[in-house]
């Protein structure tokens, strides 16, 4: 059975909602059931932004996941907030450009680091750090391919930026290839 759920968390502006949508579209086009729900309610005031995505080949029950099977952590406060909720042996993908990876519990979790901001800078656009992190997530979980994600880009990037789709694909590939398992 294919099933993964993930909470993607970071600062507002890091594009966590965008890669959440991207993951959901990619899963949908790969024939999976998907749900996506943005952070809602009082948590909106916490300075972090997050969304929850569920991918499954079975019917999806709860779209809200208190103990996720994976996390994509883009900034330090998100690690503090969500690491304790991650399921035992869950996938913890951490943006090591901003987050101190030594805080990750490698005994309990399957921890992957990715130098997302540095890689995005190297590729010419720091705003693509989210795509790099998503690539690392694909590597860690194996739930979908780079191609699945790449094909979904046109659905989440507004039409006037479609010229950036190839660059974003490169960012996803770089994340996939350069993710480091601790």
């Amino acid at each position: 059975m294919a099933y993964i759920d993930t909470i993607i968390a970071g600062f507002g502006g890091q594009g966590v909602m965008l890669i959440g949508n991207l993951l959901a579209y990619a899963g949908m086009h790969a024939g999976l059931n998907v749900t996506y729900i943005p952070v809602y309610g009082p948590e909106m005031r916490g300075g972090t932004s997050n969304c929850t995505v569920v991918l499954s080949d079975d019917e999806i029950g709860s779209p809200l996941i208190p103990c996720p099977k994976s996390l994509i952590i883009m900034n330090p406060p998100s690690l503090d907030k969500f690491q304790s909720q991650l399921e035992e042996n869950g996938h913890l993908i951490v943006n090591s450009s901003l987050v101190d990876a030594s805080k990750c519990d490698t005994k309990r979790f399957n921890v992957w680091t990715i130098d997302a901001n540095a890689i995005a800078d190297r590729l010419g656009n720091t705003r693509m750090a989210n795509m790099v992190a998503l690539g690392a997530f694909l590597k860690a979980t194996g739930i979908l391919t780079i191609e699945d994600a790449s094909k979904a880009l046109e659905f989440v990037i507004s039409a006037r930026y479609h010229n950036l789709i190839p660059a974003n694909t490169v960012a996803i590939e770089a994340g996939f290839n350069e993710a480091v398992k601790l």
Partner: peptide
């Protein structure tokens, strides 16, 4: 409710 309203699904 807000879950149904705000959640995206195919």
């Amino acid at each position: 409710d807000a879950i149904l309203g705000q959640m995206k699904e195919p």
